[in-house]
């Protein structure tokens, strides 16, 4: 049982990574990965919604009529997104103002509805929580890696909570393209090539 749960969790990090392999939830990943600090909050918010909605949806799967399952999933997901939105606004206003529209937009993040439909609506509660957590962590590590690379190359330094933790120094002229949209695609493509290369090795 534990091994089963573990494998459901680990698959989200590598072989079934939502961003790199399933290729869902890309919009938000490309948009918020301009700063490493942002990606952590965005990732945590999405993970919270993912785990909670997977939990509730697997819990009520027996009383969910098949015909209206999608509206029910949406209601559950939207509720959790609104909770995250309100809590961030009340307790982390600075973070909220920086992530702005991307927090409410978690509701249309395909990872969450996708996991509800493909996994949580068919499996047990514990497995669904493990799946949600794995997918969430898979989302976080890719987002963070992208944010780290883009911020470091695009601005020449990494800033966490107004403190510079890593810097190329003033002589480095940062290629601004990395924090613009083309940089998002470049970073994403290269990272995807790398992750899929490693995945292929694992499978062999």
């Amino acid at each position: 049982m534990i091994r089963k749960l573990w494998s459901e969790l680990v698959k989200g990090l590598t072989l079934e990574n939502p961003l790199m392999v399933l290729m869902i939830g890309l919009c938000s990943a490309l948009a918020v990965s301009t700063r490493a600090e942002n990606t952590i909050f965005m990732g945590l918010a999405a993970t919270f919604v993912l785990v909670s909605s997977n939990f509730i949806i697997s819990l009520i799967k027996k009383v969910t009529p098949n015909e209206i399952r999608i509206p029910i999933f949406i209601v559950v997901i939207a509720s959790f997104v609104t909770i995250v939105d309100l809590v961030l606004r009340a307790y982390f206003p600075v973070v909220y103002s920086r992530l702005g529209v991307w927090i409410p937009l978690i509701v249309v993040n395909c990872i969450i509805l996708g996991r509800a439909e493909a996994f949580a609506s068919k499996r047990g509660v514990l497995e669904s929580i493990a799946d949600g957590l794995g997918m969430g962590l898979g989302y976080i590590w890719i987002l963070f890696t992208m944010g780290f690379v883009r911020e470091l190359l695009g601005t020449g330094k990494i800033v966490f909570f107004d403190r510079t933790i890593l810097s190329f120094g003033p002589s480095f002229e940062p290629p601004v393209i990395f924090i613009l949209f083309p940089g998002a695609f470049l970073t994403f493509g290269l990272l995807m090539a790398f992750v899929n290369f490693v995945n292929r090795r694992i499978k062999k």
Partner: peptide
């Protein structure tokens, strides 16, 4: 039956949300 089912889910969600809203409103 389907309509009733959806209404119940929505009512529960609305209840939970109004709770969180009340708790966070003042701070926001």
């Amino acid at each position: 039956f389907l309509g009733f089912n959806l209404a119940v889910i929505c009512a529960i969600a609305a209840g939970a949300l109004s709770g969180v809203y009340t708790l966070t409103r003042e701070r926001i």
